[in-house]
């Protein structure tokens, strides 16, 4: 009995160490991306010309900022590597990534829909694009049933046409009319 409890406790500690190592690995990738990006931007900013009136010039501040960022990322990356080596349990990466994405599939789908909506906005206009976006987004989150479809259509109508009218008539903020409806 005690043996079994010990075994399950050890397995739990092992799983938690693996999780910690995977999180640290994901962060390590972010440090590398930010670090390399900041080195590139620092060099690019350094190439900006200075002025006779102002020796520092437009490039000095971004050069300094991105150099500091590169140093911070380097330190963070070294610490992350040490942490990962210490825990020594970096396995199951692809499975964990799949689980991570699966848990966020609605979030990513919603973001994809937002991108399509933003791209369509100048062409379709605010009311039409918003109506379609709201309806699909609501059904995506709530699931498709007769009740949710009716609710979504009503809510989408109110917040697409209604918001457009509110902003145009009350706040004098004119939202994109769309090339289809302009003229």
């Amino acid at each position: 009995m005690t043996n079994g409890t010990e075994k399950s406790a050890a397995a739990g500690a092992d799983a938690s160490a693996a999780r910690r190592a995977r999180t640290e690995f994901a962060r390590l990738i972010s440090y590398i991306v930010f670090g390399l990006g900041s080195v590139y931007l620092s060099v690019r900013a350094g190439a900006l010309p200075t002025s006779r009136w102002e020796p520092l010039g437009a490039g000095s501040f971004p050069k300094l900022v991105f150099a500091v960022l590169a140093v911070l990322c380097l330190i963070a990356a070294i610490r992350a590597v040490i942490d990962i080596r210490k825990t020594g349990h970096l396995y199951g990466l692809s499975g964990a990534l799949r689980r991570w994405i699966r848990a966020r599939q609605v979030a990513f789908a919603l973001f994809g829909l937002l991108v399509v909506y933003l791209a369509a906005l100048p062409y379709a206009g605010f009311s039409l694009a918003t109506f379609v976006f709201l309806m699909i987004a609501q059904l995506m989150i709530a699931g498709i049933s007769k009740k949710t479809i009716i609710q979504s259509v009503i809510a989408a109508l109110i917040f697409s046409v209604g918001l457009n009218l509110l902003f145009a008539e009350v706040f004098n903020v004119f939202l994109p009319r769309g090339v289809l409806f302009a003229g």
């Binding site: 919603l110 909506y117 906005l121 609501q138 903020v173």
Partner: peptide, 28 residues
């Protein structure tokens, strides 16, 4: 329910971002 709040608030964010300068590129 969340299904009404999340997309609607997202639209309000888009309006806020657009109304600042009336620039579609700000939305990208």
């Amino acid at each position: 329910p969340k299904q009404f709040i999340v997309p609607t608030v997202m639209i309000c964010c888009v309006i806020g971002a657009f109304a600042l300068n009336n620039r579609v590129t700000d939305l990208y």
